[in-house]
Structures are given as structure tokens and as C-alpha cells.
């Protein structure tokens, strides 16, 4: 059964109702662009790694992308739990938007890792635990998004995807721990041994990517909520079964 809380949407989340983007989202866009510009400047000005040279600079894309992907899937899992507890549509759209952005950043992490792998390992792809588990994480969340697309009813979709959003999060732990569990080519965490200048640049990139994630998720969420709002508006104005049937004229029959 559908309740008000299940179907209520907040079209003001990212739009002002007239189709224009609201001021907070526009401000966030500005901060995200400024953050990315700063991250690029810092990443290109810090010294290159002594052993790897300029190839190491890919780390400023690869590591933040992987971090944002983990963050995004974590938010999806938490929003899924929140939807199962409250049945508020905003949690469902947050979970969906975050998973969508998470898939994008997982793809970015995979692509940048492969580009880095060619000059470093000599191959684009190898059977490395982190690489394989990340690729599988990518596929699982593609499945999550496919599950959402395959379920037309919004409440049914929210319930199914909330369950899947929680189960899929188990894979995030596998990806994170894969370099500790398996002896692989991928390096283990090096945040304590990294040069301070490189670490600073990495933190700037992580911060910039996180702001971009928040901005993209907000926009995607606003879009999903606007779509839902439009669907509900369409339902209210559309014809229903029985509209074409007119009341029989019983008086005329009795006269005849």
C-alpha cells in the first residue's frame, strides 16, 4: 500500500520549481569547479615521484576516484537502510543518485589504474586482486542500476533496490581488504610513508573529488525527484479507467 510519506517528493531539493537550479546547488558547482582547478594546479606543480616519474601523477585521479566510489556505495547502503526504516522517498533517490555517481567514479578508478598499469606493470590488465574485485564491484552496481530500471513501480523499486544496496555493500569490504588478504601486485596503503608534498596534493584532490561527488549526487537526486514529481503530476491529470463510459439515459428509455 502506498502512503503519503512513501510517495511525497521534495522538488525544491535541487530546483526552485521553475526548472532552474537552486542557489545552493549552483554554489556547490562553483566550489567543485574551483576545487578541481586547485587540485589540478597542485598535482601538476608538486615534484614527480623519484622512481615512477610523471606517471605517478595519475595517483591524484586514481586514489580520489576510488575513495569517492567507496563513499558513494557507503552512502547508498546507509540510505537504503534509512529507506527501509522510514519509507521516505528522499532516501531512495539519495541511494540511487549516489550509486549512479559511484559507478562513474569506479569506472574512473579502473580506467586510471589501467592507464597507470601499462607503463608500470607492462600490461593494462592483470589478475590483481584489487583490480579484479573493483571490476566486479563495478558490475554489481551496474546490476543495482539495472534492477532499478527493471522495476516500474516506485515503491517496489525502492524496496528491491534498498535490499540490493545493502547486500552489494558487502563487496566494498572485499575490495578494500583485497590487498591485505591476497599477495598481489597492487600496493598496500601507503598514506604513512608518502612524501609530505605528495600527501598534501593527494588530500587536495580527495577533497575536490568529494565536493564533486556531493555536487553530482545532489544534481542527480534533484533530477530523480523532479522525475518522480512529474510522474505523480501526470498521474493526477491523466484519464482513468471508466472515463469513457457515460451515464445511461434511463429517462429517454422510460419515455419510449
Amino acid at each position: 500500500m502506498t502512503t503519503d510519506s512513501e510517495t511525497s517528493t521534495d522538488p525544491q531539493a535541487g530546483h526552485d520549481g521553475s526548472g532552474r537550479t537552486s542557489t545552493p546547488v549552483r554554489k556547490l558547482d562553483g566550489i567543485a569547479v574551483a576545487g578541481i582547478v586547485l587540485a589540478i594546479v597542485v598535482a601538476m606543480t608538486v615534484p614527480a615521484d623519484k622512481l615512477q616519474g610523471d606517471v605517478q601523477r595519475l595517483m591524484y585521479v586514481h586514489v580520489p576516484s576510488a575513495w569517492v566510489a567507496f563513499l558513494a556505495f557507503g552512502v547508498t547502503a546507509l540510505s537504503s537502510i534509512a529507506w527501509l526504516r522510514t519509507h521516505k522517498v528522499t532516501w531512495d533517490t539519495t541511494a540511487a543518485a549516489s550509486a549512479f555517481v559511484g559507478v562513474f567514479f569506479t569506472g574512473t578508478a579502473l580506467a586510471s589504474g589501467m592507464i597507470w598499469g601499462k607503463p608500470t606493470w607492462g600490461v593494462f590488465w592483470t589478475w590483481d586482486a584489487r583490480l579484479v574485485s573493483t571490476a566486479l564491484l563495478f558490475v554489481i552496481y551496474l546490476g543495482y542500476l539495472a534492477l532499478r530500471r527493471a522495476t516500474p513501480d516506485p515503491i517496489d523499486r525502492a524496496r528491491r533496490s534498498a535490499i540490493m544496496g545493502i547486500i552489494a555493500a558487502l563487496q566494498v569490504a572485499v575490495v578494500y581488504k583485497s590487498v591485505d588478504w591476497w599477495v598481489t601486485l597492487h600496493q598496500q596503503s601507503s598514506r604513512n610513508s608518502i612524501d609530505p608534498a605528495l600527501r598534501l596534493s593527494l588530500w587536495v584532490s580527495v577533497l575536490a573529488f568529494t565536493i564533486v561527488y556531493i555536487g553530482l549526487t545532489s544534481r542527480r537526486r534533484a533530477l530523480l525527484e523532479a522525475e518522480e514529481s512529474l510522474r505523480l503530476r501526470g498521474l493526477r491529470g491523466s484519464a482513468v479507467a471508466g472515463d469513457a463510459i457515460s451515464k445511461p439515459n434511463l429517462e429517454a428509455r422510460s419515455d419510449g
Partner: peptide, 29 residues
């Protein structure tokens, strides 16, 4: 894992392919 995915994809038209894409990567560990 299979029973969870089975219930999540119950009665969907693309159930067979959806379940496969959710079960196989999820069972890699």
C-alpha cells in the same frame, strides 16, 4: 546469496539476466 537475489528479482521481466549479473560477481569471494 541466491535466495536473496531470487526474492529481489521475483516477477521482473528481465529476472534471468538480472539475477545472473547480481549473483555471479557477488559470489566471487
Amino acid at each position: 546469496l541466491g535466495s536473496l537475489v531470487n526474492t529481489v528479482t521475483t516477477s521482473l521481466s528481465s529476472r534471468t539476466s538480472l539475477a545472473a549479473i547480481l549473483i555471479v560477481p557477488g559470489s566471487i569471494p
